[in-house]
Design a protein around this nucleic acid. Structure first.
Length: 188
DNA sequence: TCGAATATATAAC
DNA sequence: GTTATATATTCGA
């Protein structure tokens, strides 16, 4: 009888939430200034495959998430439940995992590396179920502007302040509205 | 199965 | 600066 765990935590103004399966693997994560939004997002995610509502409790990954938000590294390893993402998405996410902290890459460069197209990569990056854990905020448009960071529909402006703040805490160098070319990382 | 919708890129004006 | 067009993948009717 599968039943996942929904755990919330807060740090400053921000709420973090994780959805973990019964084998302690991360199904999805979310963060927002609104606790309600985080909870709603994760609950609806779990309902896409499970009939039962997730039980609620605490989990170390909710704390780890705030470290990532602050631009720090994880203290403990994580395992992902990849059963809800496509092979294509996983191919993209494995590349995102290789982007070093303090650097960024672009949708187009990823597309070239995996022999796909930039819009398709944008789709995959935008539907990342594990924000912060899979650093989708390190992907920017080819013109090196900040680009979008939609949080599944919310905050949909072209140069997301949330995304920029994440990058700046990771010491990505900016000049005005653009990332410096030296911070660009090329996937192999 | 097909048409529409993307967190795009590039080239032209 | 602004379009126009090519493009890969996903999702819903």
């Amino acid at each position: 009888m599968p039943n996942s765990l929904l755990a919330l935590g807060s740090h400053g103004r921000i709420w973090f939430g994780v959805l973990v399966d019964e084998d302690d693997r991360l199904l999805a994560a979310a963060f927002s200034e609104s606790q309600k939004l985080v909870k709603r997002h994760l609950t609806s995610f779990s309902q896409k495959a499970e009939t039962k509502a997730p039980r609620e409790g605490s989990h170390r990954l909710a704390e780890e998430m705030s470290r990532l938000y602050d631009g720090k590294m994880l203290r403990t390893p994580i395992r992902l439940n990849e059963s809800r993402v496509s092979d294509f998405q996983m191919k993209v996410y494995r590349l995102l995992n290789k982007i070093p902290r303090g650097r960024v890459t672009s949708y187009g460069l990823i597309a070239k590396a995996i022999d796909s197209g930039p819009r398709a990569v944008g789709n995959a990056v935008g539907s990342n179920p594990w924000p912060l854990f899979i650093p989708c905020h390190r992907v920017i448009p080819a013109d090196r502007s900040v680009g979008n960071y939609s949080m599944t529909g919310k905050n949909r402006h072209p140069d997301s302040p949330v995304k920029r703040a994440l990058l700046e805490r990771e010491k990505v160098p900016f000049r005005e509205a653009h990332v410096l070319p030296t911070a660009l990382w090329n996937p192999e």
